[in-house]
């Protein structure tokens, strides 16, 4: 070697060797810090302020007085959430709608995932593709499409009226029913994909073993397939449940005025009432509601990995 100076490539290699792990892990964390943690802290800060007719429309948390910091924390917003039954019922309603939607999604998604997992090679990729395909169109457009289908003058009503099955158009849009359709339709792939991946990994000979040991097929399903697909069921359910609770677009476009969900309440507080502190505390409270299931989900996942299954 003629030169003692390391080339750029060598320097880069050394850097990666020494700090590669930190860089690889650090970058996504930096991203999360910038775009998740800091906005979260801002929202948290606003939730402890009081609303003001000003720019910005809330009081300052920290004020500088005589070389000292005066911190004004207002828990009033959270107390207000508890005192006004509107918020509590919006939360409960969101959880109820999300839970029912999750169960329906599971009931539809499980057989689909099972069918895909047991399908022959080439057919399987086609079926999987069809599950993923809707993602290529904007979510908003797909929800609008449902308006066209469910509307008073929509596709279903037109069809049924023309066939003479009904004489009056059915009211489907702007009901809770339409919200269920919207949520189940939108989140179905999030249920199917994790279920598929657990079912696909499952050894078929386990079911044969259960049959061989005297189980009828349905019992083999309950005793073997179902418990072994539990990780997929939980992952899918949480992936559907968590975003459904905070769902705004679907209840806004498909739901009626009575469909009270927390996402809509939040939107109203921000944009209609312009009460940022209340809106922020609604958001923080919702987050706390959801953090528990998220952490549970994480816990299950790590446990599953430890078991090496």
């Amino acid at each position: 070697m003629s030169s003692d100076k390391p080339t750029l490539k060598q320097r880069y290699d050394r850097l990666m060797l020494r700090h590669g792990r930190i860089i690889v892990i650090g970058l996504p964390y930096l991203w999360l810090m910038l775009f998740f943690l800091i906005p979260f802290l801002i929202v948290l800060k606003i939730s402890f302020a009081t609303a003001e007719y000003a720019q910005p429309p809330y009081s300052a948390l920290f004020t500088w007085i005589d070389e000292g910091v005066n911190i004004t924390i207002n828990f009033g917003n959270y107390l207000f959430l508890l005192s006004d039954s509107l918020y509590i019922s919006a939360y409960l309603n969101s959880i109820r709608i999300a839970a029912i939607s999750t169960v329906i999604t599971l009931l539809i998604g499980y057989p689909m995932a099972y069918g895909i997992a047991r399908a022959q090679g080439s057919l399987r990729s086609v079926l999987l593709m069809m599950v993923i395909l809707p993602f290529w169109t904007s979510f908003l457009i797909r929800v609008y499409a449902w308006i066209g289908i469910l509307d008073r003058e929509g596709l279903i009503n037109a069809l049924l009226l023309n066939l003479g099955i009904i004489s009056e158009p059915l009211i489907m849009r702007q009901t809770e029913f339409a919200v269920y359709i919207g949520i189940v339709y939108t989140y179905l792939p999030f249920m199917i994909l994790p279920l598929y991946s657990t079912l696909e990994k499952m050894d078929v000979s386990l079911i044969e073993a259960a049959l061989d040991l005297g189980c009828k097929p349905w019992k083999a399903f309950i005793k073997v397939t179902l418990p072994l697909s539990m990780p997929g069921i939980l992952a899918g359910s949480l992936l559907v449940f968590i975003p459904s609770v905070g769902e705004f677009v679907i209840p806004e476009l498909l739901g009626g005025p009575n469909t009270l969900m927390i996402g809509r309440t939040l939107w109203n507080e921000f944009f209609a009432n312009r009460d940022w502190p209340i809106a922020s505390s609604v958001a923080i409270a919702m987050l706390l509601f959801l953090v528990v299931p998220i952490m549970w989900f994480q816990h299950i996942q790590t446990k599953q990995e430890e078991n090496g299954q």
């Binding site: 050894d203 000979s205 072994l228």
Partner: peptide, 8 residues
């Protein structure tokens, strides 16, 4: 079974 197929 060849893979033993024990219920995990």
């Amino acid at each position: 079974f060849q893979s033993y197929a024990l219920f995990p």
